[in-house]
Nucleic acid binder design. Structure first.
Lengths: 360, 360
DNA sequence: CAAACTGGTGTAATCGATTACATTTATATC
DNA sequence: GATATAAATGTAATCGATTACACCAGTTTG
């Protein structure tokens, strides 16, 4: 038992050991490390030598307890395996870790228990701030993240009616732009492959799709809205649904609410003999790395993924250090339509190519 | 200043507040929360009511300081944006978070400064254990992770000559199997698309490739070993290198050290008119999700990614809780060859199909 | 030469929980 | 009814750092 305790609680030098070795008080050691300029040249060298000799590293729990900080931020991610979020995370990690913050990644994975655990963590003061990449404020059965009164910033998915800063792109506008591109190519029968109805991003992208059609005076056809949930699998299903249609009833173009579904759909209809983009033009959304790897490469809205993360992180740091908890400042980052190989004018026999001049 | 301090250090109930409200001592409150069965039914309800009324949550820094634990483990990942590691991470997250551990993800991204920062973090006792997904033990200029005397487990990439547990697959054996598959289809001119030479996984997979050739008495041709570094980009470059060869000098099959490069290569040679698998069979390694999304779907070695993570995490938990620091236990998980659409016998005009009977 | 500073250092309180040990109260035993 | 035993609770030390305040020596200033 004694033996076990000794091994588990391996001994590390503490500040008192350093003080003793250097022949100074603990206060002086602490000061030397925090603000070297306030101590004498001579004590400084003595203390630093003692630090090296003892291999001292401050105990962070003790420091946190004393200064009431953790230097950790929690990032809530709907799903780490999603390549889009993985890249946003890189941006977050870049800024946060150079600013000296640690990162706890809360992989929600649609599990309310996990969500609750993380809310408790934050409420317990385990984090100095929270970055929300999910479309709602986190809750546990009896707590709400906002009760933690911890700095909060949301990114990627806009959360309506909240008072904390949010960093997003203009989803409605860019979705509209994507569909306008198809319209300019001459398409008039344009399908939409949607995300889960309850998702805010989905609602905004759908709205953009509708606006573009309305502006071009193209009648909206509810039959052209295919259900999906942002996963590759539902892209495949939507592809099958498309194939099941009468060839002449098929749309000549499709706008997908994200890239993964677009790629799933392309793969499916291509395997059945449809040529992309000859028989069907496809535009995606997100700009994940694979959109440029697939065959054909995908025309898509590329979001500034790293930048979204980096900006949100910077905003959070500002919030944590300046204590302007109430100040709301939404930031909209630019996203652009990237023209690649999956779009072209509709086949001559169909559609009414209006602006052939443009060739991107 | 006073105002600012008040807001930053927002007040949360502490154990003394709960004790006062419930009319008991702090020890009783602590016990009620830790081991409810040791207090009276009556005090328990009084205390729990007080906890709810005050909204009390224990301060974790204080607890950690006292019990010398952090309930956090650090996971060192070469690159979070790599889909392979993202899936391993999911497995890790699953087991670790249900066991009540938090997760700090150290995204090394090839940066020695980051690596050093994280080593210091661990040495400072900020983590109870470390999971290494990279192929080397982490170091800072003056420290080495092993000095932290913290439980350590490695996964995915085997680190030779170390005494901590490692969870991997049989890279040599499965690589050999992948190449044997090509040989059984009748290929005799088989290229290898390599990873970075210094990488252990690369060395093992190359060894498997060599073994398979040797067993089949196929002479190794150094010109058939193409350089790569595990990225999509080098797959594209290797594809160009292949296209630059005299058509008759081209290999009829290729084994890539990972899927991303295989996909890059396929895309490139396909765009130049080569048919996959008719003109070139390709086998990958890893089994990332996109290996099943690309066109054609990729025959590959699928690693049990989630399971690798989960197993390593479980091993680490065992280490952290039982204190058997010395006990080395390597675990090899099964990986299997997944036959898909990117392989078939070589064109009749070339190669010498030896075993046409097998058709997978 | 005394008073007023100033720069460097030490003493001790503090952060908020856990827990060994002491103490009280209730129950069983002879 | 006295004593041993068990059960429940309280008191206070402890974890390891930070920092307000006290103190002292040396320098300036009038």
């Amino acid at each position: 038992m004694a033996k076990r305790t000794r091994a588990l609680h391996r001994k590390t030098a503490k500040i008192a050991d350093v003080a003793e070795l250097a022949g100074v008080s603990v206060a002086t050691v602490s000061r030397t490390l925090a603000r070297p300029e306030v101590v004498t040249e001579e004590t400084r060298t003595r203390v630093l030598a003692a630090v090296r000799d003892t291999g001292y590293t401050p105990n962070i729990s003790a420091r946190n307890l004393r200064v009431r900080k953790t230097m950790v931020v929690l990032v809530a991610v709907p799903d780490i395996a999603n390549p889009f979020f993985a890249e946003v995370l890189q941006g977050i990690d870049d800024t946060l870790s150079t600013a000296g913050y640690g990162l706890i990644i809360a992989n929600l994975a649609g599990s309310p228990e996990k969500e609750a655990r993380y809310v408790d963590l934050v409420c317990a003061g385990q984090a100095d701030g929270v970055l929300l990449l999910c479309g709602h404020v986190m809750r546990s059965p009896d707590r709400d993240l906002r009760e933690a009164r911890v700095p909060l910033v949301a990114a990627c998915e806009y959360i309506p009616r909240e008072s904390f800063p949010q960093v997003t792109i203009d989803n409605v506008g860019t979705a509209r732009e994507a569909v306008q591109h198809l319209i300019e190519l001459g398409h008039t029968s344009i399908a939409y492959l949607s995300g889960p109805k309850s998702n805010i991003l989905e609602q905004q992208r759908l709205e953009g799709y509708r606006q573009a059609l309305r502006e071009a005076a193209i009648a909206a056809d509810a039959g052209l809205i295919l259900p999906g949930d942002f996963t590759f699998r539902t892209g495949v299903e939507a592809g099958r649904a498309l194939l099941a249609l009468e060839p002449l009833a098929r749309p000549t173009a499709l706008f997908a609410a994200n890239d993964e579904m677009a790629i799933g759909l392309i793969k499916t209809v291509h395997a059945a003999g449809l040529q992309i983009p000859d028989d069907l033009s496809v535009v995606g959304f997100d700009g994940i790395a694979y959109a440029d790897y697939c065959e054909p490469t995908l025309t898509t809205i590329v979001q500034p993924r790293r930048d979204l993360g980096a900006t949100a992180a910077a905003e959070l740091i500002a919030l944590m250090t300046t204590d302007k908890l109430g100040l709301r400042k939404d930031i909209t980052l630019p996203a652009r339509l990237m023209l690649r190989d999956s779009t072209r004018p509709p086949p001559k026999s169909r559609g009414h190519s209006r602006s052939r001049t443009r060739s991107g």
